[in-house]
């Protein structure tokens, strides 16, 4: 019988990125877990899998995908799930996550995390797809709130209400990206603290902390800057409400030395310790 729950993992981690491969293989990098971008390792062989096999022997791995397209009206592609399941069988991850978004319909794949309308039909579609994916992967799925840059006239609910109902119907869990809440709130006019108050905290298994940039008309979720102060403030607010959780810095561009990311992760550890002590 496949598990219907995900055991929480308490710790602080980083994403495995190419410039740091060698350090992960040769140094005692002080992280509690490592997150991989699943698609970067859904390959036949060669260096990526060679590195991954060694990293997974030293750290728990969280698999984080960008190509599931859980919100596609025509379902999730079977060939993608076959490859994802094969990687999961190899890695034995803490969990498998992707985004509450869509990228593909029929034969066109944008390879971007496109926004879903917050409608009953979209909720039905997402829940149907999640239940199917969870059947195939034989485990609950973890879904991340996306950064969004627009809203739809047909929206019927808030994003946090959508997430709450989605987790209730499917038993899936959440990867709460605190920066995405901040970015989407700034772009779409909601208060990120309302979002934190409405999100089902008991379903959160992982936290993403990242940086953003100011575009011409929107905040952009660029992952190329340090975590901003408002995002740290949001993290400090939500952390005491969560159970054991895996928190990490997510950096995908303008990637600094590993030591710089570890210093940023130390800030996350300090904030978590302080707010936990204050709440006790």
């Amino acid at each position: 019988m496949p598990p219907k729950t995900i055991t929480p993992f308490q710790g602080f981690g980083l994403g495995l990125r190419i410039p740091h491969f060698q350090q992960y293989l040769s140094e005692p990098v002080p992280v509690d877990f490592v997150e991989i971008i699943s698609e970067n390792f859904m390959v036949a062989g060669g260096r990526p899998l060679h590195v991954l096999d060694q990293v997974r022997e030293r750290w728990p791995i969280a698999m984080h995908g960008v190509s599931m397209s859980i919100g596609s009206a025509d379902g999730v592609r079977a060939d993608y799930l076959v490859r994802l399941k094969a990687l999961a069988d190899r890695v034995r991850p803490l969990w498998i996550s992707d985004h509450l978004s869509w990228s593909r319909l029929e034969h066109v794949n944008s390879h971007d995390l496109l926004p879903l309308p917050l409608t009953d039909e979209a909720l039905d579609t997402v829940c149907r797809n999640i239940l199917h994916v969870q059947d195939v992967l034989e485990r609950p799925l973890v879904l991340e709130n996306p950064s969004t840059y627009l809203t739809f006239v047909d929206d019927q609910m808030t994003e946090w209400a959508f997430l709450a109902e989605m987790t209730r119907r499917t038993g899936c869990y959440l990867l709460l990206d605190v920066n995405n809440i901040y970015v989407s709130g700034a772009n779409n006019g909601f208060d990120p603290y309302d979002y934190l108050a409405g999100v089902p905290a008991d379903r959160v298994r992982q936290i993403h902390l990242a940086g953003h940039s100011q575009g011409r008309d929107r905040l952009i979720d660029t992952h190329d800057q340090p975590v901003s102060d408002p995002v740290w403030d949001l993290f400090a607010r939500i952390y005491p409400r969560l159970g054991p959780v895996a928190a990490m810095i997510e950096r995908d561009d303008n990637i600094p030395a590993l030591d710089a990311l570890l210093e940023e992760l130390a800030i996350a550890r300090r904030i978590a310790a302080n707010v936990t002590a204050a709440a006790a």
């Binding site: 944008s110 390879h111 971007d112 496109l114 309308p117 969004t148 840059y149 627009l150 809203t151 739809f152 006239v153 047909d154 929206d155 772009n187 575009g215 011409r216 008309d217 929107r218 952009i220």
Partner: peptide, 25 residues
């Protein structure tokens, strides 16, 4: 008419990201 007011500015972000990501690839 599918987007809320100022949706064009948000759409511009997605349009730019689509091409930029494929060119980066």
């Amino acid at each position: 008419t599918a987007f809320d007011a100022d949706g064009a500015a948000g759409l511009a972000v997605y349009r730019n990201a689509y091409g930029a990501q494929l060119v980066a690839c």
